Simulated scan of single mutants.
Amino acid sequence: MKQPKYKRIVLKLSGEALSGKKGFGVDPDTLLNIAKYIKRIHEMGVEVAIVVGGGNFWRGRSGKGMDRATADYMGMLATVINALAMQGALENNEVDTRVQTAIQMREVAEPYIRRRAIRHLEKGRVVIFAAGTGNPYFSTDTTAALRAAEIEAEVILLAKKGVDGVYDADPMEQPNAQKFDKLDYIDILNMGLKVMDSTATSLCMDNKIPIIVFGLDQPENIVKVINGEEIGTQIKEE
């Protein structure tokens, strides 16, 4: 078996990626397919932590006429639904998994405790971080950056639906948009590229955590990245 390039990773999955072609909710076939490839890298000896978004159910900015904090808390609960669904799919593939939430809900999942999360990873369990940071006004991208720094992950894999990397414009709207193979963190901030929000990008820059952005329409891309294939867009300090 090929030696993986990374030992410990944070895989950031958007909520939309779990909805498949439905565009809303969780598509069981898509979920199981993603779980299959996560199992592949897990069997390669990679310690896998996952951060899931909630956009397939609710986004904080969706709450018209609602205060932002309340809307953001609803978004955090949406990520818990996705985390439990992902846990079920992984355990159906015989991958030992733990869900940790930033908002305590002990009947559903463990509370987030950094040392416990690291211990789970060391014991070969996949850990899914849900409920964001537990604070409104912070995105799940920021959660991925924060948790990656806390557990000392080597890289963040940012798996996107519908795009295969970072472009200078929305490729869905502008067919001539230019794709970047490599970028510096500061390029993301200066050019206002919609990869991660500025807080998440700054956290990665301060802690020198590389980011690889790639398409999840082909879930086998997860394995390709772990094997060191240069796909998508690599973001790191030049």
Score class of each variant (00 low, 15 high):
residue 101 T to L: 09
residue 107 E to P: 00
residue 108 V to S: 02
residue 109 A to G: 04
residue 109 A to E: 02
residue 110 E to S: 04
residue 110 E to F: 06
residue 110 E to P: 02
residue 110 E to T: 00
residue 112 Y to I: 01
residue 112 Y to S: 00
residue 112 Y to P: 00
residue 113 I to D: 09
residue 114 R to F: 07
residue 114 R to Y: 09
residue 114 R to S: 10
residue 115 R to A: 10
residue 115 R to K: 07
residue 116 R to K: 15
residue 116 R to L: 12
residue 117 A to L: 07
residue 117 A to K: 03
residue 118 I to Q: 14
residue 118 I to F: 11
residue 119 R to P: 01
residue 119 R to G: 03
residue 120 H to Y: 15
residue 120 H to I: 00
residue 122 E to R: 11
residue 124 G to C: 08
residue 128 I to F: 04
residue 131 A to T: 12
residue 131 A to G: 13
residue 131 A to Y: 06
residue 132 G to D: 03
residue 132 G to L: 01
residue 132 G to I: 01
residue 133 T to P: 04
residue 135 N to T: 05
residue 135 N to F: 10
residue 135 N to Y: 10
residue 136 P to Y: 12
residue 136 P to R: 10
residue 137 Y to L: 00
residue 138 F to H: 14
residue 138 F to T: 12
residue 138 F to M: 14
residue 140 T to H: 05
residue 140 T to S: 11
residue 141 D to F: 02
residue 141 D to G: 03
residue 146 L to Y: 07
residue 148 A to H: 09
residue 150 E to C: 10
residue 150 E to G: 08
residue 151 I to E: 04
residue 151 I to D: 02
residue 151 I to P: 03
residue 151 I to Y: 03
residue 154 E to F: 08
residue 155 V to T: 13
residue 155 V to D: 11
residue 155 V to I: 15
residue 157 L to K: 12
residue 159 A to F: 06
residue 160 K to C: 02
residue 162 G to I: 02
residue 162 G to R: 03
residue 163 V to E: 13
residue 164 D to H: 04
residue 165 G to K: 00
residue 166 V to P: 10
residue 166 V to E: 13
residue 166 V to T: 09
residue 166 V to W: 12
residue 167 Y to Q: 05
residue 169 A to K: 15
residue 169 A to G: 11
residue 171 P to G: 06
residue 172 M to C: 09
residue 173 E to K: 15
residue 174 Q to G: 00
residue 175 P to G: 07
residue 175 P to K: 15
residue 176 N to L: 05
residue 176 N to E: 15
residue 176 N to F: 12
residue 177 A to L: 12
residue 177 A to W: 11
residue 178 Q to G: 01
residue 178 Q to A: 04
residue 179 K to F: 09
residue 182 K to H: 14
residue 184 D to E: 13
residue 185 Y to G: 02
residue 185 Y to F: 15
residue 186 I to Q: 12
residue 187 D to H: 11
residue 189 L to D: 05
residue 192 G to C: 11
residue 192 G to I: 10
residue 192 G to H: 09
residue 193 L to G: 11
residue 194 K to W: 09
residue 194 K to L: 05
residue 195 V to H: 08
residue 196 M to F: 06
residue 196 M to T: 08
residue 197 D to A: 07
residue 198 S to N: 12
residue 199 T to I: 13
residue 200 A to K: 04
residue 203 L to C: 03
residue 203 L to D: 06
residue 203 L to E: 11
residue 203 L to Q: 10
residue 203 L to G: 07
residue 204 C to N: 09
residue 204 C to G: 08
residue 204 C to H: 06
residue 205 M to L: 15
residue 206 D to P: 02
residue 206 D to N: 15
residue 208 K to N: 14
residue 210 P to T: 07
